[in-house]
């Protein structure tokens, strides 16, 4: 079920998942998304362990990361992958409800590549997600070891 996909979406709220996929769907990127529901699952996926032990090799071209997550939160995920030699180059975009400055500062300190606050307005939200997907999954040249565009 988890083939090679370029976008890893880490989001615990199914409604946000749906809205995000709606946004990405506008550019037909919805099929490029793997969704995980918490930080632990995200790390399992990235480190190919647990249920993702047998997934094919290759890092996502971008990870869309929520901060407030069950079990392992977004900061901890970020910390773990930045400490790993193979994963440290994976582009990470924080996609969160919060526009608290301390979250922003902490994220950048941990080496995030972009920080996006989910707009309340649906059109703004869809636009934001769409543009993110296009930029990171289509326009941007990902680091070596990432899943290539098919």
């Amino acid at each position: 079920m988890n083939g090679l996909k370029r976008i890893l979406l880490v989001e615990d709220d199914p409604k946000d998942v749906e809205l995000t996929l709606t946004g990405l769907g506008e550019y037909n990127l919805a099929n490029e998304v793997v969704v995980v529901r918490d930080g632990e699952e995200a790390l399992d996926f990235l480190f190919r362990r647990g249920q993702y032990q047998k997934r094919p090799n290759g890092n996502p071209a971008v990870m869309l990361l929520d901060l407030k997550l069950p079990k392992v939160n977004g900061f901890e995920v970020l910390e773990a992958i930045r400490a790993d030699e193979k994963l440290k180059m994976v582009p990470v975009v924080v996609l969160t409800s919060s526009n608290e400055e301390r979250d922003l500062v902490r994220s950048y300190k941990l080496g995030v590549n972009a920080y996006v606050t989910k707009p309340v307005d649906f059109h703004e939200f869809v636009n934001a997600v769409k543009e993110l997907g296009v930029f990171w999954a289509v326009i941007n040249e990902p680091p070596p070891g990432s899943v290539k565009r098919t």
Binding site: K68, S97, E100
Partner: peptide, 22 residues
């Protein structure tokens, strides 16, 4: 409180607006 409002209160509003639009 503010932190939690920032994270949690905005999400349902966003969902209402989002799904309403859809």
């Amino acid at each position: 409180f503010a932190y939690s409002v920032s994270h949690d209160l905005r999400a349902p509003v966003r969902h209402i607006a989002g799904f309403g639009e859809l």
